[in-house]
Nucleic acid binder design. Structure first.
Lengths: 226, 226
DNA sequence: ACCTGAACACCGTTCAAGT
DNA sequence: ACCTGAACACCGTTCAAGT
């Protein structure tokens, strides 16, 4: 159908109207994601936000799959890699936190970002930073790549848990925590039951920090053991 | 439409016909996933495989979202946790490998499994095993939960990369590797260019092993430093 | 208790026709 | 060069009607 006003027409827009562009589409798509989640992204909803027909998008992006890839690239492309200090632990930590900040800027998009082919061009900038730190810290070439991939796995795995967790899993919500705890205790699995109080809650920021510190310690121990 | 034979009818099946069941639906859904990928799963395709109308599925499962959750649970529920040996490193390694084996049994389902709310009931058995090992190795209660979550992040992050990588990224395919290498060199990012030969290829099994060993070393170092 | 026909409100995508 | 009408082949889901 398209816009319902009486001046609906075909062909290119009358002069003065904003032209459709890849950037405008991406911005609109990100708005949909932030407002209603990835599931609400469709060619039609995105186009509607631009007051344009869904089919028009095909002139600027490569179908829906291409749109989702582009959204992921957009989010990951906004990682602001901090300047290096020369202190490896500090630098690696800062890059990991920058990654998390970018993911948390669009919480609803996080699973999209983490789930798509990550080593796309957009993620090469943070990868470059990590590799540079590792090489300066004394890692061999092949070793640096293994360590990069290990660090990336920790970051991605941690952020994915955070993205998938129900919103209330974090702070407050003592009721939800009590419910989960009761569920865990009902399993009868001894360690699960014993640790139910700890398992029923999750401070995502602290958990991310813990995993990253553990990984960094492992990396540095490995590099200094030489 | 349903089956096109001339005896189409409504109501419950004539006696002798197999009844629809949650298990039958899950099995059919897993067949679709293995044969054509998660994207090919729809109420209609799954129902067609059972020669049943799509709407019939609603009597046994909670809509499409419920179906996807159930598939993920099914795959993860098949993790065969090995018996403990008392050697923490060996036991943790074995659990991680069991996790990978389950994921690789249904490669097309992997991203589904890793992406959904993981701490569902199905994943509690492997979690119990990890926690038990950690506690025996001397971890404090809260610490054991942090370490479990860190280990899970490494495993999930690694398997997610493996699942998302294009099939050819692994072995052979020297052409694809050469292409990727050329792409990486064109970025001009110094460390990326220097390490392009290593970055262009990825032995998933070795990479998984490396990340897991690094994580286990970190865990044990932390627990023995006391 | 279980299955389906009719129906609804959505999808992504192609392609020819318009300006 | 860019946009859309018409059209197609799909979706998930509700609900009343059948046995």
């Amino acid at each position: 159908m398209g816009p319902v006003n009486s001046t609906t027409r075909r062909g290119r827009p009358r002069k003065g109207e904003l032209r459709l562009s890849r950037n405008a589409i991406l911005a609109a798509a990100l708005e949909v994601v932030d407002a209603e989640g990835v599931a609400a992204v469709s060619m039609r909803t995105v186009a509607a936000r631009l007051e344009v027909d869904a089919k028009s998008l095909y002139h600027h992006i490569d179908g829906k799959e291409g749109l989702l890839d582009a959204i992921a690239g957009e989010v990951i492309g906004r990682i602001e890699v901090p300047e290096q200090t020369g202190e490896p632990a500090e630098d690696l930590r800062a890059i990991a936190q920058a990654f998390r900040r970018a993911a948390r800027a669009h919480p609803q998009a996080a699973s999209l970002v983490l789930t798509r082919q990550l080593p796309g061009p957009a993620s090469l900038v943070p990868a470059e930073a990590v590799l540079s730190v590792l090489r300066k810290a004394g890692a061999e070439p092949a070793e640096a790549v293994h360590l990069l991939r290990s660090l990336l796995a920790v970051v991605v795995g941690s952020l994915l848990r955070e993205a998938n967790a129900e919103p209330a899993f974090g702070v407050g919500d003592e009721d939800g925590i009590a419910d989960r705890r009761a569920d865990l205790e009902r399993t009868g699995l001894p360690s699960i039951v014993e640790l139910a109080p700890e398992l029923a809650r999750c401070d995502h920021e602290a958990e991310f920090g813990f995993a990253v510190e553990l990984a960094i310690a492992a990396v540095l121990a490995r590099l200094s053991r030489r």
